[in-house]
């Protein structure tokens, strides 16, 4: 009974905020698009007391038949993977620095990592537009220093897109790494050093492997939101970056095809469950 009480809140949470929305999404994905408010026919119609199925699998089938969507998925996964990898690369030295700092300094350092969140997400991304555009600060500086003759196209490039992603999601990679590194018993590293390992060997053979679960968590925490990201590619990315978030927006708003948009969202959800399963395997090992 007690066990049930303890487990109830997380299950309720999952049911209300994960299972129920996914179910609604699935129902919309199985609906037929139609002109109306909302713009689809519900897949289940009530004829008197009996429910009648009038849905269709067309939208889900379209996703597999039309390689437009597969291409969007692949480029999203690529951009998300690159962003997460870059975040890890930057986050690792930061996390190591924080974990090895004097205990009294750790909290202020962690707060500094979180400080960008004090500013809203949109102004932070918007600021990059001002910095990167042709008449922006970066190009202004380059021109004044005489390094370039004409403004270098910086905004609306893949570089700008990755920059925005890393800037927005870096703290998500730092925090789990710090936690993992703090959990690490310093005695293990000392033992390795006592046995004659160089600092680099200690890091490579002891610190790094033991912090891998933290690194994997950090990678996922960046990868998952980055894969579905819409705002950053839209504001900073090149027009040819056709990521899932933008394709989804286009189906929903421009083509008003809610069932197809819902099918895309479901597919994204499914695609992201896979790395989470892999992570669980890694954790339990």
């Amino acid at each position: 009974m007690r066990r049930l009480l303890v487990l109830a809140p997380p299950w309720l949470w999952l049911l209300l905020f994960v299972a129920a929305p996914a179910l609604i999404l699935a129902l919309i994905a199985l609906a037929e698009p139609a002109e109306g408010v909302p713009p689809f026919l519900p897949p289940i119609a009530w004829r008197g007391t009996w429910p009648e199925w009038q849905g269709s699998g067309t939208s889900l089938a379209t996703l597999t038949e039309d390689d437009w969507y597969l291409a969007a998925f692949l480029s999203s996964l690529r951009v998300a993977g690159l962003s997460a990898a870059l975040c890890l690369l930057l986050a690792y030295p930061m996390a190591l620095g924080i974990a090895r700092a004097r205990p009294s300094r750790r909290l202020p350092l962690l707060l500094l990592v979180l400080l960008p969140f004090w500013t809203g997400f949109l102004p932070r991304i918007g600021a990059w537009i001002g910095l990167l555009r042709d008449g922006g600060w970066v190009n202004g500086l380059l021109l004044r220093l005489g390094l370039v003759e004409a403004p270098v196209p910086l905004l609306y490039t893949e570089g700008a897109l990755l920059l925005g992603m890393v800037h927005a999601y870096l703290p998500f990679a730092v925090l789990p790494l710090v936690a993992a590194l703090l959990r690490l018993d310093p005695a293990v590293e000392e033992a390795a050093a006592d046995l004659g390992a160089t600092p680099f060997t200690v890091f490579r053979t002891v610190t790094l492997p033991l912090s891998l679960p933290g690194a994997a968590a950090g990678f996922l925490l960046v990868f998952i939101p980055a894969a579905g990201e819409f705002v950053i590619p839209e504001l900073l990315g090149p027009p040819e970056a056709r990521l899932v978030g933008r394709v989804l927006w286009e189906e929903f708003f421009r083509n008003r095809d809610w069932p197809l948009a819902a099918a895309l969202a479901l597919a994204l959800l499914a695609a992201l469950l896979l790395p989470i399963r892999l992570f669980q395997r890694l954790e339990s090992r």
Binding site: P238, P239, E240, N255, D257
Partner: peptide
């Protein structure tokens, strides 16, 4: 709707160049 989709794809390709 199908024609709209064809047009918005044409536009996406045009923007991408």
């Amino acid at each position: 709707a199908a024609a709209e989709r064809a047009r918005s794809r044409l536009w996406a390709r045009f923007k991408a160049g």
